[in-house]
Design a binder for these strands. Structure first.
Length: 292
DNA sequence: ATGATTTGACCGTG
DNA sequence: CACGGTCAAATCAT
């Protein structure tokens, strides 16, 4: 795939980070063996930071994802020209000048983020309405991420989810839980298993609500997913609607998993997950490193 | 009481 | 003007 070669300093940086990550892991193991001596969550956060950094340095091209499509990317941000409305309504942009990527899934799964529905529309020629979601932290953390969910097939049900923008919000609570969870199984579990486990705990679960399934926890998008049994993803198509994409955008964004790192071990598709660091285990990063 | 969802109106684009 | 994305008041859920 991508990244013909990273420049020397990046390679060095990754090398350095891998070293740090290794140490952090050792510390984690140590703490696990002697409970009460420290905060595992903290270590997981550290690991997460390492992983994020490594991933950012390692990820390159938007088009490293073979399945990338270009969303009818008309404009790149200037269609929102002139007439900005002054107050309240109408001040939104219709076209996104941000990255977008599509997933088609057979069941609505938790992607690890908390979403808030802000609209629903009947779409022309579509059997099912389209739901619009924005990140719960849109206002408190100015997180620009949004997504659209629409059922495109009946039976078996199939949903298309279009993600727009990258999460800039910190979901550390979820993250650490996720990491802890994956840590407990990380020795022998498969990549997928890790991933699912991580996703499972990514959102705060109201006690007693649809447990069992690793994907059972939905903090905010409840009705949307309530009676779906999480299964697998079918496709994952990335879009780059704008040339303004910057690598730094990948921090804590879902596509880093599906478009970047994830691709290393799973050319298929994976649900987006911002806090992938603890989920993607060492072998993955070793792969990354090996490809440098 | 607070936060999430629903739903019709509003608005920009084509 | 139709369409689709967003807003925000009303409503619902916790």
């Amino acid at each position: 795939m991508e990244s013909p070669n990273l420049s020397g300093y990046r390679r060095k940086a990754v090398e350095e980070l891998l070293q740090g990550r290794k140490s952090a892991k050792e510390l984690k193991d140590l703490l696990r063996q002697t409970p009460g001596t420290g905060d595992l969550v903290l270590v997981e956060k550290i690991l997460s930071s390492f992983a994020n950094s490594i991933a950012m340095l390692s990820s390159n091209q938007p088009d490293e994802v073979s399945q990338n499509l270009r969303i009818k990317s008309e404009d790149s941000g200037d269609s929102i020209k002139s007439s900005r409305r002054k107050d309240g309504r109408g001040c939104y942009k219709r076209r996104r000048c941000v990255d977008s990527w599509v997933k088609e899934i057979t069941s609505l799964i938790d992607d690890g983020h908390s979403w808030r529905k802000y609209g629903q529309k009947d779409i022309l020629k579509a059997k099912h309405p389209r739901s619009y979601y924005r990140c719960t932290h849109k206002f408190d953390q100015s997180c620009p991420a949004t997504k659209q969910v629409q059922q495109i097939e009946d039976n078996p049900p199939k949903y298309r989810i279009v993600y727009y923008g990258h999460h800039t919000c910190m979901n550390l609570l979820n993250a650490s839980q996720l990491l802890l969870d994956s840590a407990s199984t990380h020795t022998d579990s498969s990549f997928l298993l890790n991933f699912e486990t991580g996703t499972a705990t990514a959102a705060a679960t109201p006690a007693g609500v649809k447990t069992q399934s690793p994907f059972s926890s939905f903090s905010s998008v409840k009705q949307e997913y309530k009676d779906n049994i999480p299964t697998e993803l079918i496709t994952d198509q990335h879009h780059q609607s704008s040339s303004t994409t910057t690598k730094s955008d990948y921090l804590l964004s879902p596509e880093i998993t599906s478009g970047g790192i994830m691709m290393l071990s799973s050319p298929e598709s994976e649900p987006p997950l911002d806090v992938f660091s603890g989920v993607i285990d060492s072998f993955l990063f070793d792969d990354v490193f090996a490809s440098l």
